[in-house]
Write a protein that binds this DNA or RNA. Structure first.
Length: 574
RNA sequence: CUCUCCGUAGCUCAGCUGGUAGAGCAAUUGACUCUUAAUCAAUGGGUCACAGGUUCGAAUCCUGUCGGGGAGACCA
């Protein structure tokens, strides 16, 4: 007897044994020739009831209603659910009723995967169902699923525990259809973007995830090590510098859905790995990029919702182009009254302090403006707004503004108070780029641990000449949150990062190890059940308490093994 | 890293100012040939997250640990 299993898990393992004894393989190898989906049946049967008279379909048993010799089962496949009607004498036409009485009623459970053949009909209660003629088990489930019930749009006992949902997404997906919808929508969103870009001749590319210089953004990277080269490598924090190398190489428009990694805090909008769409287009500038962005977002909203108005929490967000455009200094003036454009670093620092923003000496002008905007302005921009024309200090890869000194041609797209995209006219002056990198080094020397490294290979590429280029990065996870109305990034990631579960100790010590200190074979499993993982733990236990505990378990589990005496237990411990 | 809330059966949750564990669903056995949160009857199922402490007695009070949520700090 496996002591670590719950009662229900034990029952299901027993059912497995019985199936084998009946000569039924609960995990058959051959393919099952499904010829229809539940969705197709629901969509088409009402209109033409002569269809679907020979269906073969498979899925998971979600609920059962057994009434003696007839039963109803809700079967769930990848497209939805359908009710099955199973009549004993139909699936067991002869004398032998084992398949119904024993296999179906006793040995099958919620969660099992079955295949059936039959015909579609409508029950007296008006529900489209399948009358089953043949029934076959395709996979026996030995772990009980959470049971969620639904009726008339209401859901009962839905699993809401985030830990369960995120750690066991597979079970979450089985049991909560709305979760599946979110991820289907996310993928549709990505497909819309891909179509939008491909239709204009963009080329999807792959660039390195392992980089020897983590460039293209300001963030702390993950570090790993390559054994053969014996060098440190970094997981990318951005792919910007690689995509721009490709523009140098002569591609006009490249893009990549880039999985980036940043070794920073985790919260409802940050996961250590996340997806950014970056794309770069030769001979364009940031004004052009704003138009592209508007069009693309409107297209996504229309594609997913059929309208540009998308509900997000209590609000409605309109993705109807064009979006508002507002210079960052105007935004700061609007919400704080501070005229940051006219200030030098020290005046800015003073202004921040007077507004209660924490500042320190490592912060240059760029970071101060960033702090001012982030603290006091960002959250006000609910409807899509392009914040434009940033100070040069906070944008080391951006081209200087064509007419406004001290600024760069950059925009960030704010939606629902969060940054969704960041774009600019790319800096293609190699001399200027070298200077900007060197400024970053100075910031690093001042203690800014996010300042960028100098990427000399990237500089070499720029020296060959990069056409004027517009580039953008769009946070795909955050966009997915908006488009699916989810408040947490974990809800748009199939497998969000979690602290590992505490190790369920598997065979740290063998039975023989326990027996070596004198524990009788029959008691080893009981000792384990009592929570002892190694003989050493037994040795250091209080013998009286241990005896009590083991005796209690023996009684509780009704074990037919001889009882223990205190002398025996003392002999193990000492 | 700080604050705060939470951890009770497979699932959803009760459990009062300490008196030794409860419900619904799920499970087991039985009844029932069109049910749909099927119904009816009976039954089993818990080291109350873990480890200490206080107490005659702890799911309950205290301390610590682990895991999770939320808020902040940090972070484009």
């Amino acid at each position: 007897m496996a002591l670590e299993l719950s009662e229900q898990e034990q029952f299901r393992r027993n059912s497995l044994e019985e199936l084998y004894k009946l000569g039924i393989d609960p995990y058959p190898a051959e393919s099952y020739p499904v010829n229809v989906s539940t969705h197709e049946i629901h969509e088409q049967f009402q209109a033409d009831q002569t269809k679907f008279q020979e269906v073969c379909i498979a899925g998971r048993i979600m609920t059962r209603r057994i009434m003696g010799a007839a039963s109803f089962v809700d079967l769930q496949d990848s497209t939805g659910r359908i009710q099955l009607y199973i009549k004993r004498d139909d699936i067991c036409p002869g004398e032998d009723k084992t398949l119904y009485n024993t296999v179906f009623k006793r040995l099958m459970d919620i969660g099992d995967i079955i295949g059936i053949k039959g015909y579609v009909f409508i029950t007296q209660m008006g529900e489209i169902s399948i009358h089953v003629r043949e029934l076959k088990i395709l996979c026996k489930s030995v772990k009980p699923l959470p049971v969620v019930k639904e009726a008339e749009g209401q859901t009962f006992d839905a699993v809401t525990d985030p830990e369960f949902k995120y750690r066991q997404r597979y079970a979450d997906l089985i049991v909560n259809p709305a979760v599946r919808e979110v991820f289907v929508k996310r993928t549709r969103m990505v497909n819309i973007i891909r179509d939008f870009l491909n239709a204009q001749g963009a080329l999807e590319v792959d660039t390195p995830v392992l980089q020897s210089i983590p460039g293209g953004a300001a963030a702390r990277p993950f570090i790993t090590h390559h054994n053969a080269l014996d060098i440190p490598l970094y997981l990318r924090i951005a792919n910007e510098l690689y995509l721009k190398r490709l523009i140098v190489g002569g591609f006009d428009w490249v893009y990549e859905f880039s999985r980036d990694f940043r070794n920073e805090g985790m919260d409802r909008t940050h996961n250590p790995e996340f997806t950014i769409l970056e794309f770069y287009v030769a001979y364009r500038d940031y004004f052009w990029m704003m138009e592209q962005t508007e069009q693309m977002l409107e297209k996504i909203a229309m594609g997913l919702h059929g309208t540009a108005e998308v509900p997000v929490g209590e609000k409605m967000i309109s993705f109807k182009a064009p979006f508002r455009r507002l210079p960052i200094y105007d935004a700061i003036k609007e919400y704080t009254g501070v005229d940051a454009a006219a200030m030098d670093e020290n005046e800015l620092r003073a202004a921040c302090k007077s507004l209660g923003i924490e500042v320190d000496e490592t912060m240059g002008k760029g970071k101060l403006v960033d702090a001012l905007f982030g603290e006091k302005c960002e959250h006000h921009f609910i409807q899509p707004t392009f914040i434009i024309d940033y100070p040069v200090e906070m944008s080391p890869l951006t081209k200087k503004h064509r007419s406004k000194p001290g600024l760069v041609e950059r925009f960030e797209l704010m939606i629902n108070g969060k940054e969704i995209a960041n774009a600019y006219s790319e800096l293609n002056d190699p001399i200027d780029q070298r200077d900007r990198f060197e400024d970053q080094v100075k910031l690093m020397e001042r203690g800014d641990d996010e300042a960028m490294f100098i990427d000399y290979d990237f500089l070499r590429a720029l020296e060959y000449g990069m056409p004027p280029t517009a580039g953008i990065g769009i946070g795909i996870d955050r966009l997915a949150m908006l488009m699916t109305n989810q408040v947490s990034i974990q809800d748009v990631l199939l497998f969000p990062q979690m602290r590992p579960e505490k190790k369920v100790v598997a065979n740290l010590a063998s039975d023989a190890d326990f027996m070596a200190i004198g524990i009788p074979e029959a008691w080893v499993a009981v000792v384990r059940k009592a929570g002892f993982k190694t003989p050493a733990e037994v040795k250091s236990a209080n013998p009286n308490k241990l005896l009590h505990e083991l005796s209690g378990l023996r009684k509780k589990l009704k074990l037919e093994i001889p009882s223990l005496k205190i002398e025996e237990v003392q002999a193990w411990c000492n």
